[in-house]
């Protein structure tokens, strides 16, 4: 996908810089005092960008699935599955940070909230995607059919996470009559951390994905090199 010259590595340095800035600001920066939220508002820098990152990674995974179906290039399938894996990792981390936050502000670790439940369903979908992948032996077939399911899943996921919570009451801001966080509890200073945090976590996700894709490619290469040897030995015997 990328040759690792200096020109293509700048975004990794950017990710490190942004995340350092976000973590420092998130732990010791000044934040506005809000009733109920108090200091837990700092979680906005971690919990929310993780979800944004997850959705961006899922979208990228779907785009690579579409590209696979159009081109039949196995490499696109590898990239798609690794983006999905990273999205699942972000999803689990988002659930964990959200759970901690909900425990202190809403009183229970898993409130019955449409958005929370929607995300849980999305996690189920992507786990099902991984199970579907493992149930095939034939590589081409696995790639094609899981790409189809990936596209289908993402399209169903969008109404689940963006439309349904807005139709009902939700504890999350921006749903069911609650104003979105842009409108009140964030001041300009918080925005200066929050928006870079989204970019930083997304870059981190892309970085993880890139490493895993390279690992997978190397493994495929070594499998190709090692495989003929045992076969040759058995035929010689």
């Amino acid at each position: 996908m990328k040759n690792n010259s200096k020109a293509t590595r700048w975004w990794k340095a950017l990710a490190v810089l942004i995340l350092t800035y976000v973590i420092v600001q998130g732990l010791i920066g000044t934040v506005p005092r809000q009733p109920i939220l108090n200091e837990s508002i700092r979680n906005v820098y971690f919990h929310v960008p993780l979800w944004f990152g997850m959705i961006i990674l899922m979208l990228t995974s779907m785009v690579f699935s579409i590209r696979y179906l159009r081109s039949g290039n196995m490499d696109h399938d590898t990239v798609a599955v690794e983006f999905a894996n990273t999205a699942i990792l972000f999803g689990v981390l988002g659930c964990a940070t959200g759970s901690v936050w909900a425990n202190y502000t809403w009183g229970e670790p898993w409130p019955n909230d449409p958005k929370t439940n929607g995300v849980a369903v999305a996690m189920l979908m992507y786990f099902a995607y991984l199970i579907l992948r493992n149930s095939f032996d034939d590589e081409l077939r696995r790639a094609r059919i899981s790409a189809i399911y990936n596209i289908f899943t993402f399209a169903v996921f969008i109404p689940l996470i963006f439309i349904l919570p807005r139709l009902t009451d939700s504890l999350h801001p921006g749903n069911g009559g609650n104003p979105a966080f842009g409108q009140y509890d964030m001041d300009n200073q918080m925005r200066a951390v929050f928006y870079p945090a989204i970019i930083g976590f997304t870059l981190l996700g892309v970085w993880i994905t890139e490493l895993r894709v390279r690992l997978r490619r190397l493994r495929e290469l070594t499998d190709d090199i090692q495989d003929p040897l045992p076969k040759a030995r058995t035929t010689a015997e």
Binding site: V121, A122, L124, A128, L132, T153, V156, P159, L164
Partner: peptide, 12 residues
């Protein structure tokens, strides 16, 4: 597989 794949998809 049918059950696993379809439950999340029909849920919305």
């Amino acid at each position: 597989l049918m059950a696993v794949l379809s439950f999340p998809v029909v849920l919305p």
